[in-house]
Design a protein around this nucleic acid. Structure first.
Lengths: 148, 148
DNA sequence: TCTTTCTTGACTATTAAACTCGGGAAATAA
DNA sequence: TTATTTCCCGAGTTTAATAGTCAAGAAAGA
């Protein structure tokens, strides 16, 4: 039971690392992978997909890497979550329960509840910028490197 | 990407059906399965597990079945969700992201965010009783029976 | 032209979720 | 006291989603 898939957790952590390094030029995948304990080859895929959101950009070759396309205080978790969940199936996945799984076709006693829950979640997500997360970052310990 | 597993959706719908039939004595599994479009043998397992919560009770043999142990207005979605998510791993699963999956052992920049999201969700869950759901139940259509 | 680093599709492995099955036990009825 | 109904419960199987890998290519600079 996990509300955010591991892949999306990786994506958020990767963007967080880019925010932390914002202004230092392109950051290599290998650096991000190590700093955030993310399997490197998997992170390649994740960042490449994230690029399509427009929130991160890349540069190839020597001294290449990834960087934020938006300043950390302008980039919210909500914007990222909408993109990350959307790459599976936009409309349905904004709800805690995809409506295709509802035998009552979304027209059931629970749907107002799911709507309220989704809104409550995104209310929090939308109010949290990458800069806000950076401000929490004081008491962070080093990762226990569960990347393989 | 589904915030509530299908099994937990079934559980909620089953309890909802028991709430709807509250006061009519024991309700058979087969009846609930049909009314809520839930695979019958799977529902057996689900209700048997739900019994351990104390919110539903059962009676065996002829004219047996399941019934709510608590009146619908006293039973909240929050209470059920705590039980349903808890039977996997209580503490961790109250968070949108289980802490065992956090390489920073929960001591990371994201954990305050996950806490706020969890609290926002349960705020909604705790304010919604089975009776509230029944009050939404007017414009409900019949299930398209995807039970096998 | 050599090295670096991202790019991209396709592929495999792993895991968790969803579901099934068969026999047993309590309760009631005949 | 036997038959029928209905829940009880452990143990299995199937399916689908997620996680992760691989290999070859293309741009950018040294």
């Amino acid at each position: 039971m996990m509300l955010i898939s591991k892949k999306n957790q990786y994506a958020l952590r990767a963007v967080f690392e880019l925010a932390r390094q914002h202004g230092k030029g392109p950051i290599k995948i290998s650096f991000i992978a190590e700093a955030q304990a993310i399997p490197e080859r998997f992170l390649e895929v994740i960042l490449w997909q994230l690029k399509k959101s427009g929130y991160v950009q890349s540069k190839r070759g020597y001294q290449g890497g990834y960087m934020l396309a938006v300043p950390p205080e302008k980039l919210t978790v909500g914007a990222l979550m909408r993109f990350l969940q959307g790459d599976i199936a936009f409309a349905a996945c904004m709800a805690p329960v995809p409506e295709k799984d509802c035998p009552f076709q979304g027209n059931c006693a629970f749907s107002p509840l799911w709507r309220r829950v989704r809104d409550a979640m995104f209310d929090v997500y939308d109010k949290t910028s990458m800069q806000d997360l950076l401000n929490n970052d004081n008491n962070m310990v080093s990762p226990n490197c569960n990347s393989k």
